[in-house]
């Protein structure tokens, strides 16, 4: 089983929302620099995809690509997948407990109530139509509840489609997979690649960013749909094992474990 390509796209969401464009506001990475991907960390990534055979001519599995979008300046994707939802619930639970404690203590001061009110935070609704985010409490970029609409953590960009030459010429077959639970953000895009026709094939990624706007005294997530480009470079070279530089077969491990 060959390694899957992970393609990470880092979006400068703040700049993209301001300029209403992804030009100059995306940074692309894959984990195949070793095999010849170029432009890693820039807007001009060309992802290398070797052929589906090994050095000895034996059949390898087709290459799988996975795309992972992330927002620059947000809570990083290394926190648990459901972090924002869990954090919101934990925070509400704490606030309720403290509120109950206040009630039993007899006298309730304004200051205490104000403090708890701040902790309740603000909720942003999803916009009336179309795909979007679920209603959720605002967290800032350090995971704390915030009432300031200027401090919210940018939600991860959502890939809505992958099109372009690489798709129309049937070089790759992208599709969206995963759990349809939008709260837990379970969707991801993956593709398999036909490596029988070497060449460079551009593709277009359609991305939805989310901006918080005040509308009728409410905060609403407004979706902003933008596109950006990248390329695949299909080559005829055989797949290589990252450890041995050869095909499948035994790894270069000593047959007898070292004494000690």
């Amino acid at each position: 089983m060959a390694q899957q390509h992970g393609i990470i796209v880092l979006f400068d969401v703040e700049n993209a929302l301001r300029t209403r464009s992804l030009d100059g506001n995306t940074y692309w990475f894959d984990n195949m620099k070793l095999l010849g991907s170029v432009g890693v960390g820039t807007e001009q990534l060309v992802t290398i995809v070797p052929g589906t055979h090994f050095l000895d001519g034996s059949q390898a599995t087709e290459q799988v690509l996975n795309w992972l979008p992330a927002a620059l300046g947000s809570i990083p994707p290394t926190v648990p997948r459901n972090y924002l939802a869990e954090q919101e619930r934990a925070d509400d639970r704490r606030t309720l407990e403290e509120l109950a404690a206040l009630g039993s203590a007899g006298s309730v001061s304004d200051a205490d109530l104000k403090r708890l009110q701040r902790r309740v935070g603000k909720r942003a609704r999803k916009s009336g139509s179309g795909r979007g985010l679920t209603e959720a409490k605002l967290l800032d970029v350090t995971g704390k509840t915030t009432t300031s609409p200027g401090a919210y953590n940018y939600p991860a960009p959502v890939i809505t489609d992958i099109t372009g030459q690489a798709v129309s010429e049937k070089i790759m077959y992208p599709a969206q997979y995963g759990s349809p639970d939008m709260i837990y953000d379970g969707w991801y895009w993956a593709a398999t690649v036909d490596t029988s026709r070497p060449g460079v094939y551009p593709y277009t990624m359609h991305v939805q960013l989310h901006e918080l706007v005040e509308q009728d005294d409410e905060l609403v997530w407004q979706s902003v749909d933008l596109t950006c480009q990248s390329s695949l470079k299909i080559i005829n070279d055989p797949k290589r094992n990252g450890f041995t530089g050869a095909g499948l077969g035994v790894l270069p491990l000593p047959s007898v474990p070292a004494a000690g």
């Binding site: 984990n31 609409p149 706007v213």
Partner: peptide, 28 residues
Amino acid sequence: PPRNRQSERQPARPVRPVTITAVVDPVA
């Protein structure tokens, strides 16, 4: 909806921190 952009024109501090992110390929 009206775009809330006035705050940028004022000398007020941005509410979000300036985030500096290191992307690292630990395997490589």
